[in-house]
């Protein structure tokens, strides 16, 4: 494997990924600068988390890492861990909504993005998939869908299906972690923290089940990596065991961390007292609901 500059070139160039990542960073930096000029501070760790999240997504989708992920099951699992858990988690824990809104040119926001976000064509499907139970089922369901042996086989051989797989993981990751970490505060009419913790908690068990199964089984479930050739000679069972561990432990850990973050916010906001939270709420809520258009 060549780890030179060649490694950083996309294996399968997708302009959409490049454009979206560059756009996200450009809009964020513009918003950050404009806010700083207006005297609004954005925590350094937030900026770092957001940028790191976007860069991580870009790296696993648009460098030769993608090639490695196609030829080693555990690297594929790591790719999905980043697309579905880590990168969206980092992006959403940064609460980038206000910064991104500030980064979008005013006219574009008012004339185009706001009406789009409020149009029924966007609102209705968005509300439907962001129902807490639907979101939780979708989050776990996608992991199971793409790991279903028959589907996984075709997804690894067929380029369009492979792209749909990675896109669906990234988009669902963003939607899910947005709902958990970044959506409107409960005090402003958003999803109650208790619900969020419940949904997160409910996703842990099925993630552990599939991860542990792959980490412990002696049966080779995914033959496609042997068919196409692994990156270096490790046994299929070892590859599968490491892949299972990645699906099991860091994924479940991320979810637990997510729960702790939500719990922390819950306690903090309860501590403020309901009256003050409600007084502060609508403003924050309004900004947030406009944030991720």
């Amino acid at each position: 494997m060549n780890f030179g500059p060649y490694f950083l070139l996309p294996y399968e160039f997708t302009p959409t990924v490049l454009v979206l990542c560059v756009l996200a960073i450009a809009v964020y930096l513009r918003g950050w600068l404009r806010r700083r000029r207006a005297g609004i501070k954005t925590g350094g760790w937030r900026v770092t988390a957001f940028l790191l999240g976007v860069v991580l997504m870009y790296v696993v989708l648009q460098t030769h890492y993608d090639y490695m992920g196609q030829h080693m099951f555990f690297l594929h699992r790591l790719q999905h861990l980043i697309l579905h858990h880590m990168a969206p988690f980092l992006i959403m824990i940064a609460m980038p909504g206000a910064v991104l809104v500030a980064g979008v040119p005013e006219r574009l926001r008012v004339r185009f993005l706001r009406p789009l976000a409020h149009s029924p064509a966007v609102r209705i499907p968005y509300r439907a998939i962001q129902q807490p139970i639907v979101a939780g089922v979708l989050f776990v369901g996608l992991i199971y869908l793409w790991l279903w042996p028959g589907i996984h086989f075709y997804a690894m051989l067929n380029v369009p299906l492979y792209n749909v797989m990675n896109w669906s993981m990234a988009v669902d990751g963003l939607l899910f972690w947005y709902l958990m970490l970044c959506s409107t505060r409960p005090a402003a009419g958003g999803l109650h923290y208790g619900w969020r913790i419940l949904v997160l908690g409910a996703t842990i068990v099925p993630q552990i089940v599939i991860g542990a199964y792959l980490a412990l089984t002696r049966v080779e479930v995914y033959h496609v990596y042997a068919v196409c050739g692994r990156l270096w000679p490790i046994s299929p069972i070892t590859d599968q065991h490491i892949g299972g561990l990645i699906t099991w432990i860091p994924a479940a850990m991320m979810t637990v961390i997510g729960m702790l973050v939500v719990l922390g916010r819950w306690i903090r906001e309860e501590g403020i007292g309901p009256d003050r939270a409600r007084a502060a709420g609508p403003n924050v809520g309004k900004e947030d609901s406009n944030a991720c258009v």
Partner: peptide, 13 residues
């Protein structure tokens, strides 16, 4: 031969 269901190479393990 590493049998790895077709992936070949000798046993490095």
């Amino acid at each position: 031969s590493m049998e790895m269901h077709g992936m070949k190479g000798m046993d490095h393990m």
